[in-house]
Design a protein around this nucleic acid. Structure first.
Length: 475
RNA sequence: GGGACUGUGGGGUAGCUUGGUCCAUCCUUCGGGGUUCGGGACUCCGAGACGCCAGUUCAAAUCUGGCCAGUCCCA
């Protein structure tokens, strides 16, 4: 293990060092914001995809895939949307040496690719709801500093797009997406808070946006994903209409749900520690690494037993790495800890003779496993590990919020702040200036901290319409 | 959008101010041999770099310009 910067005091440097140490990406690709996925990193990403696919399909959503290029003429149809993305799209203006009649954009997101086709697919109320998703790469010309997984120009993007009969049904789809997200977050052992963004910070073209945020130390927050209700904002310009049961023609109400590889970054940021990366078992490239401990006296017994352990656990359905390379065992321990493997199984000569092995999880919990119950004991070691990192993340999450009662208190915030807000934009901006960050919005459901609702807005002191809001510094 | 800074083997660095001591330092890494192996082994042999393109100069890692890449600060 190389010495990592301190996670608490030098979070960004620590994050970059952990990403490097974890061996999941190669940042040397010579285009800003475009990173290479290594074999190890790609395993993590594929596992993330698997979780997303499982949970979204459980809610009745089907996979589709739309093209990467969108004609400028379609892209321009929804005015707010184009305004939001105009500055950060890549343009394709030539085919070979020939200038194109209609320029094409590399999708920054797929509304404008999908919706002209949705208009053809949706004819009757019988076609609704229509829930489809795709996992594709999208492109945004970020001008700010890019960071591996967190701010990139080529985004590995999960996007669900749905068409519903009316506003209320679309609202139910938003709720369904939030429940599906809850399952995904549980699989990744990630805590989060769902926050309805203020008007000035919602998705371009949305009626409202619910963002999924997690605090990452200090007042910093990381947005993990978002769910949007579009009402008829896109169905009108794109003409997505259906014939209702009563014979009338209506526009669909739409929703979208977006996630990305940023979840890999979030997992590294939230679970990682002073020793390196920590992967929850569902995302872990390998759930178990098996390390034989050679000994001249014992011949090939440790090696043979390690192979047996790896084979049995693989047949049991686990992702297993047998590390029988030439390094010394201690060097292997450090390596696999740095890259975040949940459970290591050590096979020594004395133990192998007694038909036991030692399991050590990434949090340091050690146990002896009898080989005749290897599969069951390994499963429970993995389950205990996931519970341990989830509990640790939850504890840090709860400690990441504090109440604020005045604008002054916001200035030196060392946590995300929970405060009373009247809902006026003017007050929101004052709050943002005070904290040097953003008014994240109003929590959906219970706020992180239990406290009596304040009677006055932290900015203007008004009493009408005061509700809980959260403010922080998005990274 | 405005400004500042940085770029040396695969990774991290010394050298740059004051051009020559540099066919470039050290750590790590990688390949091969041997002895080892219950928490980063030792040893021997070997591999690997001045971002790119111009310019100044007898001489450029070092100075100048452009480009590319990256970082930070401000709007």
């Amino acid at each position: 293990m190389v010495d990592l910067p301190d996670k608490k005091t030098d979070f960004i440097d620590w994050y970059l060092a952990v990403v490097e140490a974890a061996g999941v990406t190669d940042k040397r690709y010579p285009v800003k914001g475009m990173n290479v996925w290594t074999p190890y990193g790609f395993r993590a990403r594929r596992n993330l995809d698997r979780i997303m696919i499982r949970e979204i399909e459980a809610t009745g959503s089907d996979a589709v895939e739309f093209p990467t290029l969108i004609p400028e003429t379609e892209f321009q149809k929804e005015k707010e949307h184009i305004k939001g993305f105009d500055a950060e799209v890549y343009w394709v203006t030539k085919g070979g040496a020939t200038s194109l009649d209609v320029n094409l954009v590399l999708r920054p997101t797929s509304e404008t690719a999908m919706y002209p086709i949705f208009a053809l697919w949706v004819r009757s109320h019988q076609d609704l709801p229509m829930n489809v998703y795709q996992i594709v790469n999208t492109f945004r010309y970020e001008t700010k500093t890019t960071r591996p997984f967190i701010r990139v120009r080529e985004i590995h993007f999960f996007e669900e797009h749905t068409c519903q009969v009316d506003e209320a049904t679309a609202g139910e789809r938003v709720a369904s997406n939030l429940r599906a997200w809850g399952q995904m977050a549980a699989a990744l052992a990630l805590p989060y808070v769902a926050i309805r963004r203020p008007e000035w910070d919602k998705f371009a073209g949305a009626f409202y946006t619910v963002a999924l945020d997690v605090p990452v130390g200090g007042a910093r927050t990381l947005q993990l994903g978002s769910v949007h209700h579009y009402r008829e904002n896109f169905s009108r310009p794109y003409g997505i209409q259906y014939e209702a049961a009563d014979g009338s023609t209506r526009y669909v109400h739409q929703t979208t749900f977006g996630l990305s590889e940023r979840l890999v970054g979030a997992v590294l940021a939230i679970h990682g520690d002073a020793k390196g990366a920590v992967f929850p078992r569902e995302m872990a490239p390998y759930e178990v690494v098996v390390v034989p401990i050679p000994s001249a006296a014992a011949g090939d017994l440790p090696q043979r037993t390690a192979t047996e352990v790896a084979d049995r656990l693989t047949r049991h359905g686990l992702r297993v790495k047998l590390d029988d390379g030439p390094d010394r065992p201690g060097a292997k321990y450090y390596h696999w800890e740095t890259v975040g493997v949940p459970v290591r199984i050590e096979v020594g000569a004395r133990e192998a003779a007694a038909r036991t092995v030692t399991a050590v999880d990434r949090t340091g919990t050690k146990s002896t496993l009898a080989l005749d119950q290897l599969e069951a004991l390994t499963d429970s070691a993995l389950a205990n590990f996931d519970r341990a990192i989830s509990d640790r993340a939850q504890r840090e999450f709860r400690a990441s919020f504090s109440l604020a009662h005045t604008l002054d208190e916001l200035r030196d915030s060392t946590t995300v702040r929970q405060l009373g807000w009247c809902g006026q934009e003017e007050c929101g901006h004052q709050i943002e200036t005070a904290i040097g960050g953003a008014l994240l919005g109003t929590p959906e459901g219970d706020p992180p901290l239990e406290a009596p609702l304040p009677s006055a807005c932290v900015a203007c002191g008004r009493h009408d319409g005061v509700r809980w809001a959260l403010a922080g510094r998005p990274m």
